[in-house]
Design a binder for these strands. Sequence first.
DNA 1: CTGAAAGCGCTTACAG
DNA 2: CTGAAAGCGCTTACAG
Lengths: 341, 341
Amino acid sequence: MKGKVTSSEVAARAGVSQSAVSRVFTPGASASAETARKVRRAARELGYRPNSLARAMVSGKSRIIGLVVAYLENQFYPVALELLSNALQARGYHLLVFTAPNSAESVDGVIQDLMAYQADGIIAASVSMSSDLAGRARQAGIPVVLFNRAQEGEGLVNVTSANVDGGRKITEFLIRGRHERIAHIAGWQGSSTGRDRREGFLRAMKAAGLEPFALVDGMYKRPVAMACARQLVAGHARPDAIFVGNDHMAFGVLDALRHAGLEPGKDISVVGYDDVPLAAWGAYALTTFRQPVNRMVEATVNILIDQIETDTAEPESVEFEGELVLRKSARIPEGLSNEGL
Amino acid sequence: MKGKVTSSEVAARAGVSQSAVSRVFTPGASASAETARKVRRAARELGYRPNSLARAMVSGKSRIIGLVVAYLENQFYPVALELLSNALQARGYHLLVFTAPNSAESVDGVIQDLMAYQADGIIAASVSMSSDLAGRARQAGIPVVLFNRAQEGEGLVNVTSANVDGGRKITEFLIRGRHERIAHIAGWQGSSTGRDRREGFLRAMKAAGLEPFALVDGMYKRPVAMACARQLVAGHARPDAIFVGNDHMAFGVLDALRHAGLEPGKDISVVGYDDVPLAAWGAYALTTFRQPVNRMVEATVNILIDQIETDTAEPESVEFEGELVLRKSARIPEGLSNEGL
DNA sequence: CTGAAAGCGCTTACAG
DNA sequence: CTGAAAGCGCTTACAG
């Protein structure tokens, strides 16, 4: 066990000062070709790499971005996590990941840990934080972006897709498909996405002069959504369409419906929200509304890095358009194809 | 932007020395009740938390564990990531996550970053690293555990399940079910899991005096596995069972088979490997071999923390038993139930 | 370009 | 128990 090698050891071996070693490893610092050569050689021989922690301490930049996520079972998050990680790595940042139950207290605790680690920025994916803590992060100069969740608060930037709009478009699609008894198993009403999609649903129904066949909170949980679906089709008056608050719940709904002997897309239409990879797989072929994860990730990373590396420009929340993706789980209105939307 | 608050500022406000502040925040250090009270009060008022980076520098312990993963599309990894993160957080450690394509070079690069961050330990999930780098990690005193992958090398600890055994048991199950034309779409042959499961398959076939109907490398990739499946059933001699190297590929195989008009579990049997959550969902109901993720995670965390916190005890690789999980995608031998195994 | 020196925010012997 | 001081491994003015 040799332990770590330091810049002083490299300096000794290269016959230069410790500062010289540091300069060779600092992009933009000045060192002669000769010095650089000697230093790199010694570094290679010793297996030296600058200690990022020490560098972070003196420079005040850790190049660590904290990511707080709730549940990874919903495929939307692993996908986002991977994209985020790749994009950040490409720009020299690293993701410190925390999984936290989606309660303000535990999220707050985790974010305090992140601040103790001098994270340069924080991404909260689908979780909310207390406004008190948001204020403190702002005071400490740590930018926070909320990914796929909207929350008011000073210094809080939201990156979302147009959820009200999406809920409305899905509902209009269903209405155009001549569905008359439309139910909504909503996303968790404690979240902005759950509320917004529901709002879109309600507006479209109202505009068409329709009453919801049923409206329940599926909590973004598979078992809850499945129970709701079973109940909805248990009586002899049943919905002819169900708009489900996200894909993760919609898969459960599809499973429950089939178990009850119904064929989705024929006996009953089901539409989800997100368009996770699994939605495209044959066994589900879920009609859904695509959230543009790529663009959401790109925006998140840009906003964060802009705030970290320049201190101008108050960042603004962004909202991206999504799009309906037609597959087999819902009846398609006559004359409509995926292109026609 | 007030910036971070330091222990000196807290000391000034509390009317004690900076060392005193440090002691109050160091578990096990001695401070009078009176001092502690004053310090905590001042800290609260100022919103102080010790800087983890500074603490890490002087103590030599960062409490950061690096996790390197390849692809998160296979549900096995998000599940493991979440469990790992929870277990580690509970013990005061944090996960710095890197996604890296599964090539020795990129994994090596990422691990060097991890070492630069003074990670206390490294978990490489289903990726391999060069033996050169493994040696360096060992020299630097950083424990590395390979999760779900076996690799020889000094200082490398493997946490796996009994893959040869699993492959054998699946094959025996298929043989007992009177399948006669058994194909294997293997996991990537560049990985120990892929090779071991295939080895188990081969041994069981040989013991039964059977020839493999087909044996191909599915590369752990869904599109590849689907193409293999399509080919296997294209001719008029087709397999009556397919053992697929992992669940992720098996879902693709199931989709491809159904698309070709075959009913899994009736016209043809399919067995996967892993038992990810999705395998239990109605649309797939995949018969598979369960890897005990919980125990694998627990062992990984214990081994790592033992090595970090005590410097005795050469750690040893561990291998856990898995178990067959019967669902609907494969014909069940007469007289056998899930209990009967 | 280069070296000596200060300083980042802590922990930890060392004396009292 | 408590304070003054050294030191963790770097970066970055400051002189030359």
